[in-house]
Write a protein that binds this DNA or RNA. Structure first.
Lengths: 249, 249
DNA sequence: AAAATTCATGCAAAAACATGCACAAAAACA
DNA sequence: TGTTTTTGTGCATGTTTTTGCATGAATTTT
């Protein structure tokens, strides 16, 4: 077994389980613990993991509970939430994705809104709880702990059985040519199903996400009906989208 | 379990509940109290929490008085939660119903528990979020706003596709002759499915619910494997159940 | 004030570690 | 091809870290 191979294996283990133990790796790769230690040391020096007594942990192991997490760019998201929440009409069927921006959208729905909202996001569902006339349908599946959204077959099947009026899709990145992109494959599949199941597609997005790209493509830009941002309508960063006929809000 | 892992778990507990008790952490992480004390000391030195007599509190914002006792019924539920959480074995498939008592059960699962847990309760799912080795499957459906649980066909179908090892069923009422009863028809149907899908049926119940009756019957008493209460095992109110061969915990 | 917890300290055992060294395989070079 | 150099590995060594336990002090509860 080559050193490189080992390094890859170790890294994937770290990604998968958030931690690795020196002893376990030594056994499963059948090399001495000293070798593993040296591997971990190297990987730590390259910043790919954090070495600790007994093994190593993922460098990003910072699973701060979702609801207590300091919301990034909160002010901007509130502005977006207010604007986006205006797009829903009475009695519509709505699909709402996860993400802190979408939570703000949900929060700003008018109290008297009467609608049926499908979501796979726990924070969104909780937020909708105090809208008396909203029927909330939660789409079940495997729960991603960090994002607090469900993914997997069940969610996708449920979405595929839907024809919604409007869909609010949270996104990590939005690029005029590449489109809507995501970093997590499972979430990508769910989001694809969502946009296909809906007549209207609304993308609430904070400024800094525009023009960035992630590995997995959810859909091309022309599929978008409206982009909701905190920017001026005539902002140059939005121009390519405006030229495609997408409504800028 | 790595020291750093413990530190992360402790911090997330602190963030979530504002406080942690040395004794509880020692139990749930299965290390000695001394170790926990040393952990708390280290974290306090790094400024990540504030160490106090008996445990630690969130170093931040709201200076909640530490030892203030919570509501009385809550105390009882904590006792029940601790007891009931011992009933799960590693690698089991678990069904967890909603209700505040079940939330306490989830809260007291050992941090290192490795299991697959199906639930239709948002608070339970959220509580399980910081158990790194628990896979959470959320069962989707129509969300009941006040109870924060899902009900309906989808939930029931999903449960019917299951064969679980153990089921924690919250209940409004428990009567020796009448059995487990509920006030909401939709929830009743879901709970019926749950108990049918599981090998073992655990009923965590607070004292005042015993002997009361609600309109809809979920199941007769002999279906129960264990009743978890805060009472003494020989309490006369539990005698009829004990005589049926139900384990009293 | 007495009893019960909780804490700090020192100590010992086990585990994990760094270091230097020897040896083998691979790579580079002649 | 043969020799030298580099690299990777395992082992022996002494060191450091981590943990649980014992003791007595400090604190809280009764």
């Amino acid at each position: 077994m080559l050193k490189e191979e080992r390094h890859h294996l170790i890294l994937s283990q770290v990604q998968q389980h958030q931690k690795v133990l020196t002893v376990e790796l030594s056994e499963s790769l059948s090399v001495s613990e000293d070798t593993i230690r040296r591997d971990l040391k190297e990987l730590a020096e390259k910043g790919q993991l954090k070495k600790v007594h007994g093994g190593a942990i993922a460098h990003s192991l910072n699973p701060v509970p979702f609801r207590d997490r300091e919301i990034y760019a909160h002010e901007e998201k509130i502005i977006i939430g207010k604007k986006a929440s205006q797009l829903v009409r009475q009695e519509q069927v709505v699909i709402m994705d996860g993400g802190t921006t979408n939570v703000e959208v949900a929060r700003h729905f008018p109290q008297h809104l009467s609608a049926t909202i499908f979501t796979n996001s726990i924070p969104v569902a909780v937020e909708l709880t105090d809208h008396p006339n909203v029927e909330i349908i939660f789409m079940g599946g495997k729960l991603l702990k960090q994002a607090q959204v469900t993914v997997g077959e069940e969610v996708i099947e449920m979405i595929q059985g839907l024809r919604a009026d409007i869909c609010f899709l949270g996104t990590r990145s939005l690029h005029p040519q590449i489109g809507i992109t995501e970093i997590d494959w499972e979430e990508t599949k769910v989001k694809r199903a969502m946009l296909q199941a809906s007549n209207e597609l609304v993308i609430p997005v904070i400024t800094e996400k525009i023009g960035t790209i992630q590995p997995y493509i959810i859909g091309k830009s022309p599929l978008i009906s409206s982009i909701v941002s905190s920017m001026e309508r005539k902002d140059p960063r939005l121009r390519p989208f405006r030229e495609m006929g997408i409504e800028i809000i």
